[in-house]
Amino acid sequence: MENSETGHSRVLDVTAALIVVDVQKGFGDAEFWGVRNNPAAEANVASLLAAWQDSGRPVVFVRHDSAQPDSPLWPGQPGNDFQEFVAERRGKGSGPELLVTKSVNSAFYGEPDLDAWLRGTGSRQIVVAGIQTNMCAETTARMGGNLGYEVLFALDATYTFGLGGPYGWRLSADELARATAVSLHGGGFAEVVATEELVRAARPTRGGGAPPAGGERRG
Protein backbone atom coordinates (compact mmCIF):
# COMPACT_ATOMS: atom_id res chain seq x y z
CA MET A 1 0.00 0.00 0.00
CA GLU A 2 1.47 3.36 -0.99
CA ASN A 3 1.30 6.23 1.44
CA SER A 4 0.00 9.20 -0.58
CA GLU A 5 2.00 11.67 1.54
CA THR A 6 5.40 9.96 1.30
CA GLY A 7 5.08 7.82 -1.82
CA HIS A 8 6.34 4.83 0.18
CA SER A 9 4.53 1.56 0.77
CA ARG A 10 3.12 1.14 4.26
CA VAL A 11 3.73 -2.13 6.06
CA LEU A 12 0.64 -3.54 7.76
CA ASP A 13 1.50 -6.29 10.22
CA VAL A 14 -0.23 -9.64 9.90
CA THR A 15 -1.07 -9.20 13.58
CA ALA A 16 -2.41 -5.65 13.18
CA ALA A 17 -5.67 -5.54 15.13
CA LEU A 18 -8.83 -3.78 14.01
CA ILE A 19 -10.71 -2.20 16.92
CA VAL A 20 -14.35 -1.50 16.00
CA VAL A 21 -15.66 0.91 18.62
CA ASP A 22 -19.33 1.15 19.64
CA VAL A 23 -21.06 0.61 16.29
CA GLN A 24 -24.40 0.23 18.07
CA LYS A 25 -28.03 0.77 17.11
CA GLY A 26 -28.58 3.45 19.74
CA PHE A 27 -26.48 5.95 17.79
CA GLY A 28 -29.27 6.03 15.22
CA ASP A 29 -31.41 8.03 17.65
CA ALA A 30 -31.09 11.48 16.06
CA GLU A 31 -33.46 13.04 18.59
CA PHE A 32 -31.06 12.10 21.38
CA TRP A 33 -27.69 12.72 19.68
CA GLY A 34 -28.40 15.41 17.08
CA VAL A 35 -26.98 15.76 13.57
CA ARG A 36 -24.21 13.37 12.56
CA ASN A 37 -21.59 13.58 9.83
CA ASN A 38 -19.99 11.12 7.40
CA PRO A 39 -22.83 8.95 6.08
CA ALA A 40 -20.21 6.66 4.50
CA ALA A 41 -18.85 5.57 7.90
CA GLU A 42 -20.80 2.31 8.16
CA ALA A 43 -19.81 1.18 4.66
CA ASN A 44 -16.17 1.89 5.49
CA VAL A 45 -16.35 -0.02 8.77
CA ALA A 46 -17.88 -2.94 6.86
CA SER A 47 -15.02 -2.84 4.33
CA LEU A 48 -12.44 -2.90 7.11
CA LEU A 49 -14.17 -5.80 8.85
CA ALA A 50 -14.29 -7.82 5.64
CA ALA A 51 -10.62 -7.17 4.86
CA TRP A 52 -9.48 -8.02 8.38
CA GLN A 53 -11.51 -11.18 8.68
CA ASP A 54 -10.62 -12.34 5.16
CA SER A 55 -6.92 -11.96 5.96
CA GLY A 56 -7.15 -13.62 9.39
CA ARG A 57 -6.06 -10.57 11.33
CA PRO A 58 -7.29 -9.92 14.89
CA VAL A 59 -10.58 -8.06 15.33
CA VAL A 60 -11.90 -6.46 18.51
CA PHE A 61 -15.60 -5.63 18.82
CA VAL A 62 -16.20 -2.95 21.46
CA ARG A 63 -19.64 -2.30 22.98
CA HIS A 64 -20.54 0.63 25.20
CA ASP A 65 -22.78 -0.35 28.11
CA SER A 66 -23.90 3.07 29.28
CA ALA A 67 -24.20 3.76 33.00
CA GLN A 68 -26.91 6.37 32.26
CA PRO A 69 -30.46 4.92 32.30
CA ASP A 70 -31.71 7.53 29.81
CA SER A 71 -29.04 6.67 27.23
CA PRO A 72 -29.96 4.78 24.03
CA LEU A 73 -26.91 2.61 24.86
CA TRP A 74 -28.30 1.46 28.22
CA PRO A 75 -27.88 -2.35 28.51
CA GLY A 76 -30.95 -4.50 27.98
CA GLN A 77 -32.58 -2.35 25.31
CA PRO A 78 -32.28 -2.61 21.51
CA GLY A 79 -30.05 0.45 21.22
CA ASN A 80 -27.30 -1.33 23.12
CA ASP A 81 -27.02 -3.98 20.40
CA PHE A 82 -24.46 -3.83 17.61
CA GLN A 83 -25.73 -2.66 14.25
CA GLU A 84 -26.71 -5.66 12.14
CA PHE A 85 -23.79 -5.52 9.73
CA VAL A 86 -21.40 -5.69 12.69
CA ALA A 87 -23.35 -8.31 14.64
CA GLU A 88 -23.44 -10.66 11.67
CA ARG A 89 -19.66 -10.39 11.26
CA ARG A 90 -18.83 -11.63 14.75
CA GLY A 91 -17.18 -15.02 14.70
CA LYS A 92 -16.80 -15.00 10.91
CA GLY A 93 -13.05 -14.37 10.72
CA SER A 94 -10.27 -16.96 10.64
CA GLY A 95 -8.19 -14.89 13.07
CA PRO A 96 -8.59 -14.18 16.78
CA GLU A 97 -11.57 -12.09 17.88
CA LEU A 98 -12.54 -10.42 21.14
CA LEU A 99 -15.62 -8.73 22.59
CA VAL A 100 -14.84 -5.85 24.96
CA THR A 101 -17.57 -4.14 26.99
CA LYS A 102 -17.03 -0.79 28.66
CA SER A 103 -18.87 2.08 30.36
CA VAL A 104 -16.21 4.78 29.83
CA ASN A 105 -14.61 6.27 26.74
CA SER A 106 -11.51 4.13 26.32
CA ALA A 107 -11.75 0.53 25.16
CA PHE A 108 -8.58 -0.05 27.19
CA TYR A 109 -10.68 0.40 30.35
CA GLY A 110 -13.18 -2.30 29.45
CA GLU A 111 -13.60 -6.00 30.16
CA PRO A 112 -11.67 -8.13 29.45
CA ASP A 113 -8.31 -6.33 29.46
CA LEU A 114 -7.72 -5.17 25.87
CA ASP A 115 -4.04 -4.36 26.35
CA ALA A 116 -3.30 -7.83 27.75
CA TRP A 117 -5.20 -9.49 24.90
CA LEU A 118 -3.42 -7.49 22.21
CA ARG A 119 -0.03 -8.30 23.70
CA GLY A 120 -1.05 -11.96 23.82
CA THR A 121 -1.80 -11.95 20.09
CA GLY A 122 1.47 -10.16 19.34
CA SER A 123 -0.33 -7.05 18.08
CA ARG A 124 1.78 -3.90 18.21
CA GLN A 125 -0.17 -2.11 15.48
CA ILE A 126 -3.86 -1.22 15.86
CA VAL A 127 -6.48 0.34 13.60
CA VAL A 128 -9.28 2.28 15.29
CA ALA A 129 -12.70 2.82 13.67
CA GLY A 130 -16.25 3.39 14.93
CA ILE A 131 -18.33 5.84 16.95
CA GLN A 132 -17.95 8.60 18.08
CA THR A 133 -14.96 10.12 16.32
CA ASN A 134 -14.07 12.61 19.06
CA MET A 135 -15.21 10.54 22.00
CA CYS A 136 -14.60 6.80 22.37
CA ALA A 137 -12.71 6.34 19.09
CA GLU A 138 -10.35 9.23 19.84
CA THR A 139 -9.87 8.28 23.48
CA THR A 140 -9.06 4.69 22.54
CA ALA A 141 -6.55 5.89 19.94
CA ARG A 142 -4.90 8.30 22.38
CA MET A 143 -4.52 5.64 25.04
CA GLY A 144 -3.23 3.16 22.48
CA GLY A 145 -0.54 5.65 21.53
CA ASN A 146 0.34 6.22 25.18
CA LEU A 147 0.68 2.46 25.67
CA GLY A 148 3.19 2.23 22.86
CA TYR A 149 1.06 0.87 20.02
CA GLU A 150 1.41 2.10 16.46
CA VAL A 151 -2.09 3.53 16.01
CA LEU A 152 -3.75 4.00 12.63
CA PHE A 153 -6.97 6.05 12.87
CA ALA A 154 -9.46 5.35 10.07
CA LEU A 155 -11.13 8.78 10.15
CA ASP A 156 -13.54 8.06 7.29
CA ALA A 157 -14.73 4.93 9.15
CA THR A 158 -15.91 7.04 12.09
CA TYR A 159 -18.65 9.59 12.69
CA THR A 160 -19.82 11.95 15.40
CA PHE A 161 -22.41 14.60 16.28
CA GLY A 162 -22.36 18.36 16.82
CA LEU A 163 -21.61 19.38 20.40
CA GLY A 164 -21.93 22.43 22.63
CA GLY A 165 -19.19 23.55 25.01
CA PRO A 166 -18.25 26.44 27.31
CA TYR A 167 -18.78 30.14 26.55
CA GLY A 168 -21.62 29.34 24.18
CA TRP A 169 -19.23 27.66 21.75
CA ARG A 170 -20.60 24.97 19.49
CA LEU A 171 -18.82 22.84 16.91
CA SER A 172 -20.43 20.87 14.12
CA ALA A 173 -19.76 17.17 13.66
CA ASP A 174 -17.38 17.89 10.78
CA GLU A 175 -15.50 20.47 12.83
CA LEU A 176 -15.11 18.04 15.71
CA ALA A 177 -13.90 15.31 13.35
CA ARG A 178 -11.27 17.65 11.89
CA ALA A 179 -10.16 18.66 15.39
CA THR A 180 -9.76 15.00 16.31
CA ALA A 181 -7.74 14.32 13.16
CA VAL A 182 -5.42 17.27 13.82
CA SER A 183 -4.96 16.45 17.51
CA LEU A 184 -4.22 12.77 16.92
CA HIS A 185 -2.07 13.13 13.83
CA GLY A 186 -0.34 16.40 14.70
CA GLY A 187 0.12 15.40 18.32
CA GLY A 188 1.75 12.09 17.46
CA PHE A 189 -0.89 9.88 19.06
CA ALA A 190 -1.91 8.21 15.81
CA GLU A 191 -1.61 8.40 12.06
CA VAL A 192 -4.85 9.36 10.32
CA VAL A 193 -5.39 7.12 7.30
CA ALA A 194 -8.12 6.34 4.76
CA THR A 195 -10.14 3.14 4.77
CA GLU A 196 -9.26 2.42 1.14
CA GLU A 197 -5.53 2.41 1.95
CA LEU A 198 -6.00 0.07 4.88
CA VAL A 199 -8.19 -2.33 2.92
CA ARG A 200 -5.61 -2.56 0.13
CA ALA A 201 -2.86 -3.27 2.65
CA ALA A 202 -4.87 -5.87 4.57
CA ARG A 203 -5.93 -8.02 1.63
CA PRO A 204 -3.98 -11.31 1.66
CA THR A 205 -1.29 -11.65 -0.98
CA ARG A 206 -0.72 -14.74 -3.04
CA GLY A 207 1.34 -17.20 -1.05
CA GLY A 208 1.00 -15.11 2.11
CA GLY A 209 0.09 -16.77 5.34
CA ALA A 210 -2.56 -15.82 7.88
CA PRO A 211 -1.50 -14.70 11.35
CA PRO A 212 -1.30 -17.38 14.01
CA ALA A 213 -4.60 -18.34 15.58
CA GLY A 214 -5.19 -17.55 19.21
CA GLY A 215 -7.04 -15.35 21.61
CA GLU A 216 -10.70 -15.38 22.52
CA ARG A 217 -13.31 -16.05 19.85
CA ARG A 218 -16.94 -15.21 20.34
CA GLY A 219 -19.65 -16.05 17.89
Rank of each mutant, 00 (worst) to 15 (best):
V20R: 15
L73K: 03
V60T: 12
V59E: 01
D29N: 02
E5R: 09
L163M: 10
G93P: 09
G56Q: 08
A190C: 03
S55D: 02
P96K: 07
R178V: 10
T139E: 05
A137G: 00
V104G: 08
K92C: 08
N146A: 14
P78Q: 06
L163Y: 09
G110L: 06
K92L: 02
R90L: 12
R200N: 06
R178L: 15
E197D: 02
T6G: 03
G186R: 13
W117E: 08
T180K: 06
E42N: 07
G164L: 01
R203K: 15
G208R: 08
V192A: 08
N80D: 03
C136G: 04
L98E: 08
T133S: 05
D29K: 05
V21P: 10
I126W: 10
N105L: 07
G148F: 14
N3K: 01
S183A: 15
A157R: 06
P75Q: 01
L118M: 13
R142D: 12
A107F: 05
G162D: 01
P78S: 06
A173F: 04
H185A: 09
A210F: 11
R90P: 08
S106I: 07
K92D: 04
D70M: 11
L18Y: 02
Q68L: 11
G168H: 01
T101W: 07
G209Y: 12
D65Q: 08
A51R: 06
E150N: 11
F189L: 13
Y109H: 14
R57V: 04
D22Y: 04
T195A: 00
T6M: 04
L99V: 13
G144C: 13
S103Q: 15
H185M: 03
P72R: 01
S172G: 03
Y167T: 08
P75L: 07
E42D: 14
R89A: 15
V59P: 00
L18S: 11
L48K: 05
A194M: 01
L198W: 03
A194Q: 02
S9D: 11
A213Q: 15
E42F: 07
T6N: 06
L12N: 05
V11L: 11
R90F: 06
S66T: 02
S172W: 03
G186D: 03
T180H: 10
G95K: 10
G91V: 07
G34Y: 01
G208W: 11
A40L: 08
I131M: 12
F85E: 09
P211A: 15
V192G: 05
A51P: 04
Y149S: 08
T140N: 15
E111Q: 13
T133M: 00
R178Y: 10
A129W: 00
E97C: 09
L98N: 10
R200I: 02
Q77Y: 04
